[in-house]
Simulated assay, not measured.
Amino acid sequence: MSASNGNLVLVVDDIEENLKVLSETLVQAGFHPLQAKSGERALQVAAAAKPDLILLDIKMPGMDGFEAIERLKADPATADIPVIFISALNQIEDKVRGFQAGAVDYVSKPFQKEEVVARVGTHLRLRTALRNVENERAKSELLLSALLPESVATELKETGTSEPRFFDDVSILFSDLVDFTSRSATLEPRVLIAELNEMTGAFDRIMRERGCERIKTIGDAYFAASGIPEPNPDHAFCLVGAAVAMLDWLEERNRTAPIEWKMRIGVHSGAAVAGIVGVSRYIYDVFGDTVNIASRMEGASKPMEINISGATLNLLGGRFDCESRGAVPVKGSEPLEMYWVKRTPK
């Protein structure tokens, strides 16, 4: 087998005959051996070749096996390589010292070839299984990071759960593409998804740059928040600034893109509850009247405009020029005070 199949074994022994016999035995069993005749040389080969396992003699001139394994385990580049001691030192004290130093196994000399092959094979299979587990864990953590806010994902990984939280002061944004349903019917699925991916990717970047959080997308709708899950006393200004940047980016894109889109945005500020929903599939979601009113702000907006509530206006501290629309009727609620946001901050 080739070294790329996880069968690269470094054999370390100062006696030439032992190196020869062990190497021949490993080759016959389908492994790929490397050789080193001293502890010093073993460190060099291990650092360069990154073997999958090391068979390490103990009694050698200069650096012995105990010092060699100590150096291997102290180096992050070689620390996780399993080491099997193979030695004529067969007292229980020697074996205990070997395991305490970090060895995964101990073979006494004179050795039986079948035993060496069996132990090497077992530990290589264990190493492969451990790598597979680590790879799957890395994939799971990457997926969690993509689905959940960073702090929530970290809490879930560390504790196995994430408690829902009440936030008394946040801002919520909804955006919606104008005439999306009718226009999407005329586009090939591949083109449609590519358009949405490009816009969503740009909006996500804008949110990250301003300390805001995309909660989710619902078709062409984009749902974001500021002050969740990390409190932000300036949440309204950050999210309105993100809304301005979203429209600016879309306008710039429309100058050269073959397909032009227009978008409505609405923002409202208030209290909300946020937490993970689902058991086998996680979704971080936000609930409450603030979310509902933000959605109504978007519904009452116009193409390429940002419509905000009086609650959001009061938190901006005059840092954006805003134009009053008066009390605007909304479905299922009393008329709400609304304001157009000018896109240039004061």
Rank of each mutant, 00 (worst) to 15 (best):
Ile54His: 14
Arg183Met: 12
Phe320Leu: 08
Met297Leu: 04
Lys139Arg: 15
Ala29Met: 13
Arg205Val: 10
Ala49Asn: 13
Ala300Leu: 01
Ser184His: 03
Val107Ala: 00
Asp321Leu: 06
Ala47Phe: 13
Lys331Val: 12
Val330Tyr: 04
Asp176Ile: 08
Leu124Pro: 06
Arg343Thr: 10
Val170Phe: 13
Leu147Asp: 06
Leu56Ala: 08
Ile265Gln: 04
Leu72Met: 06
Asp204Ser: 12
Ala47Asn: 13
Glu70Thr: 15
Phe287Ser: 03
Tyr282Ile: 00
Asn314Ala: 14
Asn7Phe: 04
Leu147Glu: 10
Val96His: 09
Phe203Pro: 09
Met338Trp: 01
Gly65Pro: 04
Leu19Arg: 15
Gln35Asp: 05
Gly62Gln: 13
Asp64Tyr: 13
Ile218Ser: 03
Ser182Lys: 13
Ile276Trp: 08
Asp52Arg: 05
Leu53Thr: 10
Ile308Val: 13
Ile265Pro: 02
Arg296Ser: 11
Ser309Ala: 00
Phe31Trp: 07
Ala47Pro: 11
His123Val: 03
Ser140Asp: 12
Pro345Lys: 08
Ser23Gln: 02
Ser269Arg: 09
Phe203Arg: 12
Lys262Gly: 06
Arg253Lys: 07
Val96Leu: 14
Arg343Cys: 04
Met199Pro: 00
Tyr339Met: 10
Pro149Glu: 12
Ala271Met: 10
Phe85Ser: 12
Gly219Met: 08
Arg210Tyr: 02
Glu323Tyr: 06
Ala242Asp: 04
Val133Pro: 05
Asn132His: 05
Glu163Val: 12
Lys346Ala: 02
Tyr106Trp: 05
Pro258His: 07
Thr159Trp: 05
Glu334Phe: 09
Cys238Glu: 10
Val27Cys: 07
Ala243His: 10
Leu126Met: 11
Thr312Arg: 04
Leu239Tyr: 02
Arg255Val: 01
Pro303Ile: 03
Asn5Ala: 14
Arg325Thr: 07
Tyr282Ala: 10
Arg183Gly: 02
